[in-house]
Structures are given as structure tokens and as C-alpha cells.
Design a protein around this nucleic acid. Sequence first.
DNA 1: AGCATTTTGTTCTGCGCACAAACATATTAG
DNA 2: CTAATATGTTTGTGCGCAGAACAAAATGCT
Lengths: 405, 405
Amino acid sequence: MSSATRLPATASDPDPSRRNNLALIATLVHHHGVLSRAELTRRTGLNRSTVGTLVGQLVALGLVYEAAPSGEAQVGRPSPDVRPDPSTAALAVNPEVDAVTIGLVSLGGKVQKKIRFATERIPTAKEAVNIAAAVIVGMRSELDASYRIVGIGLAVPGLVNRADGVVRHAPHLGWRDEPVARMLGEATGYPCLADNDASLGAEAELIFGAGAGRGNLVYLNGGASGIGGGVIADGALLRGSAGYAGELGHTFVRTAGQICHCGASGCLETEVSQSRLFDLAGLGGGDASQLEAALRSKASAELAAEVARQLGYLGITLRNAVNTFNPDAIVLDGFLGILHALSPDTLDGLIRTQALDEAAGRARIYRAALGSDLMMIGAAELAFTRLLADPAGITALPAPPAKVR
Amino acid sequence: MSSATRLPATASDPDPSRRNNLALIATLVHHHGVLSRAELTRRTGLNRSTVGTLVGQLVALGLVYEAAPSGEAQVGRPSPDVRPDPSTAALAVNPEVDAVTIGLVSLGGKVQKKIRFATERIPTAKEAVNIAAAVIVGMRSELDASYRIVGIGLAVPGLVNRADGVVRHAPHLGWRDEPVARMLGEATGYPCLADNDASLGAEAELIFGAGAGRGNLVYLNGGASGIGGGVIADGALLRGSAGYAGELGHTFVRTAGQICHCGASGCLETEVSQSRLFDLAGLGGGDASQLEAALRSKASAELAAEVARQLGYLGITLRNAVNTFNPDAIVLDGFLGILHALSPDTLDGLIRTQALDEAAGRARIYRAALGSDLMMIGAAELAFTRLLADPAGITALPAPPAKVR
DNA sequence: AGCATTTTGTTCTGCGCACAAACATATTAG
DNA sequence: CTAATATGTTTGTGCGCAGAACAAAATGCT
């Protein structure tokens, strides 16, 4: 027997019931931002006294703090506001073809800092990790002074195995089998997790964005790195057998279409692409806002036709998605959001007429509004999800900094 | 205050922890058929003594019985087998365009009885309910002697709201907004639930069929009533906002395809149809086995070409499904299963070359083997799921019959 | 201004449930 | 026939939640 045998029955596994209830309350507060204790008792169905104990424990853990009530004055003793403690925070990293963005997100989903580090060329995995590590190590002392960092989340445009944080294949970055989570974890000393960017975008939209409170949401993001998809089905992120589910960018939309880099033909991602719009608009490699302005003003016949063509293919994907997922909301981000904003009725009309009426239901199409903050929030959720699943497990982490609020 | 005010704090809501554990064990036994008590402790992680108490309670409830061990002899005191009590059973009803099938399924998923009642023409909802009710009432005394019926499950080829048991739209049956669950419940006195047939088929396959033990499964059934789809994602049936998710029969597979009854064009269901195969094979309205024989023997060039064409479109649907769901298994039922069986490598090759390599993973395509038993099992699961979620709630039901095993 | 009403926080007690330990039992190995 | 092993059974302990009684802090009515 090794000397480490027979650990004392640590408090690391308290009654599952308590862990569950702690997680429930912590998650509610994280998602809603403010919630009175009375509201917590109503939403959880737990007893007043129990909620009191649980909130007290979360306060002691530094996940939550109580403050004077801010809500409407009502008859009866006022119930204190419970808010997520912003000094508990996570780091977010999002490598793209032309930049690596690093952010600091506090519990409750507020982006406190965001640094976009532009790169000359497409970064390799090693380069992206080095950039992120350098930025993080650089602000480490500042972080330690004001925050307790619970981990790092990586949002990668590609197929990612969430379980081990390995990027199996990111075609637009040219990465294959890169253990980015481990690499960044070792470089910084923080626990690190990774997942597909669009999946994380879907989660962020579900919690803080257009889909707030809904259980069924389809998120599609169009960017320089093609089209990524993420799906929330019945309240949970769709993962699939190995975590590669939700690749709606490779939905079949056209018979005898172009050959996609994935090997098939007629994929959404090949028929609908940002670069073609940039070319036709006479823009070199500008950003999204320039594209939107160009599309709105000088609508050459050729450009208008291309927009219509792309909207048609996007409509086919949405029709499939509606029939497949019966969602409450569809959220379009990036240039797909721009296309939709140009004529909001087009796509809506397509799903009304082309999808099954019942499946379309009252589903609406939204344009994502959080921009690049969304990726930061989604990536940070990776770390927060782990934290919120077992709030008492936080004791292993460094002590929280002195409170300055 | 009415006299009924203030019910005694009934045992109907015991500690959620206990309900949960009871449900866990009952479900394990139902799914596996036989499980030693020792295995139950291992799988649940619960304490020996706890499992003992729980199994005892389930025995008292009549959901389970213990018997002499049947497994391999091993060192140590033998652990008794725990088996689902087959005298606890559910009724299953599956209306189709040419028949109504009624079945009796016992806990553990064994189909004890099955009656197919052929109809001259497509039954209306009222007719289907009347047929089912007549059959059920007819065998009522026989049932009461040997079984405790926990409810009825309806598997309907169409869009069904599982929550209230209303068939929103079953195009092939010509039903709209038919509250079939309520109708059959009132006609028989049994609690009654309804859902889409393919969704229930997917559940049945997951539990007892080719997908046993997997968490991600795509099920496609081709029959006289078109093509239905059901998806198990991350261990749970995909429902969507109103329960209409999984309609893979309306996946887009062809540009400028035929107009579907759903209003769109190029749907899988219009391009791939059983009746076209029957026509080309020179069969009037035979059954599936005749079709399979015909396809295997006299393969006219025309028929072969049609088979190839349909396989191509089916392949597109599977490619989309793989990219969307990253499943462990794809299960094809009905004539889709026949098409696949004719040349098993065709579809497999299509998803290997056309879908994303990573998403395809080690996914395999299976042909469903349970035939019409599958629908009975799936429908019965509707009643069993409710039962298993709160085994102690069974006390409201009639007492179990005297045991004859 | 004061009192009733309402709502919620707080404290204390009891109960149910799961676990662990000690003991009993039934099998295989030698 | 004995040792070893695995499992069922019994008993005691502790934890966490619910509920009741009480305290506190607001509104609203007179």
C-alpha cells in the first residue's frame, strides 16, 4: 500500500443532495444576475430555512454576495438581493484565423476585460497558446489582486473533444489533434477546458442572450472561419457521441453543388460564404461592419443577387433545423446575422412556408447582439459550468482576494 | 374551507432522494432484464444495505421479484437475480393507414400479446380509438386476472404533443388536432399517453434493440405512412419546444425536387418512397417481406436504378444526420432497412466519404430487427416511463393480481 | 402616528434516508 | 474440512431538509 492510501472521507463528496441544491442556487444566481432570496425559495421549491443555509454557504465560498434589496417595494419584510460575486472569474481564449482574443469574464457573465491580439498570419496551435499564455501571465499579478480565477475556457473554430480538450480538426486554422487545453493549462497553471466555438456561442446565447430562458435554440455563426453551428436541445447543449454534434455548416443545401473541403458537395459552408460578399462589395478584407454598410448602401444588382442566393441556401438549412429541432429561437451571428438583418422577413418567410408548420411554431429568428463578447462569455462558461456543478469543490482553489466592491 | 382541505402530508412525496434511487434501480432492472443485487450496488454506487432496502420496496410494489441466482458461479455468497415483474404490464396501440395494432407488453419489454386489426380504409381517429377500446375491453377480464395494467401508450405516425396526447397533424392518416389520448383514456378507464411513432421506435431501439446502451442514436422508419424519424441525443429523446423534433423525413435532399405534401420541395419523404418500389416491382400493395424478396431476386434495371436513386437520397439524409448528431448508431426500419440490407456497404460508404470523418467516427448503420414488436415496446414505454419515474406512486393503481409465474 | 397585516429571515426540532460497521451466510479453493 | 471471498442483514450514526414558532421589516389603513 502506498502512503497515500485511504484518504480521509473528505468533505469533497458531501451529501449529493446538498451538492445538487448548492449547484441549483449558484446556477440560478449566475444566470439571472440578481435574485431575491424569496425568489430563490419559490424557484427551487426548497424551504426558506434551507435556502438560507445554502446561500450562506455560497457566500462563505465567495460565489455570491447578499446586498440590500433593489427590487420594487412590497408589503412584507424585504428580501435581500443575491448576486454573483464578480471577484470570482474565468479567463476566455478564442483563436481565429487572424487574431487571438483573450478575455476576463466574471461570474454572472460580465466581460471585464478583452484583448484582441491580431496576428499576421493564421496562428499555429503553439503560437495561439503562446500568445494567450503571454497575455495571461502578463496580467497575472493584476488578476491575483482582484479576482479568483477558476479556470480558462478555450473556444476553437473546429471539432473539439470537450472531454480532453483536444482539437481534433480545425480546418480553417489548419490544426489537427492539438491538445490545446493541456498546453495552455501547463503554460499558465490554470485548469483549462476547450470546446467548439459555436457550441459555446449557443450556450452563451441561451443563458445571457436572445435565447434567455428557452430550452431549444439553434445558433449559427458565419465568419472568416466558415459557418459553425451549435444547438441547445431540451435545455442542454447537443454534444453527440464524441462531442462533434451540431455541425450545421455542412448541411446539404444544393444538388451538384461545389465540392467542400470536407469532401462532400453542396454544403452550406461552400455555398454561403463571407469572402464572396467581400469580393463583390469591393472590400479587401475588411470587418463585418464595413460589409454591412456596403450591403445596405450600394446594392449592385450582382451583389443583391448573391445576397438573395445565399439567403436561399441559408433558408434551406434553417428549414432542416426547424424540422429537426423544433426550436424556440434561431440565432444568427456574424455575417449570417447581417444577411438576415438586411431583410428580416425573407428567412422568416422561408421557414414559415418551407418547414413543417407545427415544428416552426412560434419560433423566431434573432440576430445575435453580443458580438465578440459572446465568445468570451461562452468560453468562460466552460470553467463556470464545472464550478457551478460542485460549488463546494472550490475549496481546493486559491483563497479569494480581499473584497473591494 | 371545503372538507377536503388540508390533505394529510401523504406518502406520495417521499424524500426526493429515495424516489430517485427507486427510479434508478427500477429502470436498470427494466432495461437489463436480469441484474444481480451485487451488480445493482456496483452500477448505482449505493450502499449494499441501501440497495437491499430499495429492492425490497420494489418487490413490495410488485415491480420486481427476486429469484435464485442464474449467473456464473463465483466465489462468495451468491447474489439473487432481480428481474422485472412481468405481471406489471402496459398496453400499446399503433394506428396505421391500413390497420390498428394493439399489444400487451410486460415490464422488461416482452411483448406478451399482439393483435393486428386490419382496416378496409384509413381509420379516422374515432375509429382507431373505437377499435383499440373494443379489443382492450374485450380482453379486460383476462387481463385483470394475470396483469396489473399501468397504462396505455399510443404510437401515432404524425406530429404529436406528448404533453397532452393530442395529435396535431398526421398527414397520412388525415388527422388534425385529435385528442386521442384523452379519447382512449375515457373509453377504457386506463391512463393514456401518446407520442410520435418514430420517436418511440428510437427509444425502444435505444433500450432493447441495436442501440442498447448507447446514448446517441438516429432512428429512421420507412413505411406506408412516409418516413418518420426519432433521435436520441446524449441519452434522451430529442423533443424540441413542443415535441415535434426529429422530423428527418423532411430533410432537404434534392434541389428542384418534387413538391411534398408539407409544402416544401425536395424532402426525403417525397424522393424516397415505398410505393414507388412496390409499383416497379409489380406488387400491388403487398407487405415488406414480399418487397424484400422481389428486390433481391428479379432486379430489373429500372428497379435497380430506383433503388440506387433512393439510396443516394437516403445517404444525403444520413450525412446530414451524422454531421448534426454525431451518433453512435443509425437504425433503419421498414423499407429503409430493406434498402440498406440489399447493399450494406452503400450507405456506410456514403457516410464515410460524405460526412465529416470525426462526426462519423465509429458510427454504424443497423437494420432494426424487432419489426412491429418495436412499436409495441416503444408505445408501452410511454406508460412505463411514467411508472419508473416514481415507482412508489403506483400505490394508487389497482392491486397486483395473485402471482402465477 | 400607531396598529394591523403581510412577507420573509432565523432558530430549533424532528424525521427520513443513506452510509458504515459488525455480523451472518453461502459459495469456491485448496 | 478449513480458509477465503463475496454478499445479504442488522444496527447505529450523521446529514440535510421540512415545518413550526418566533422575530423583523416593510406597507396600508385609520
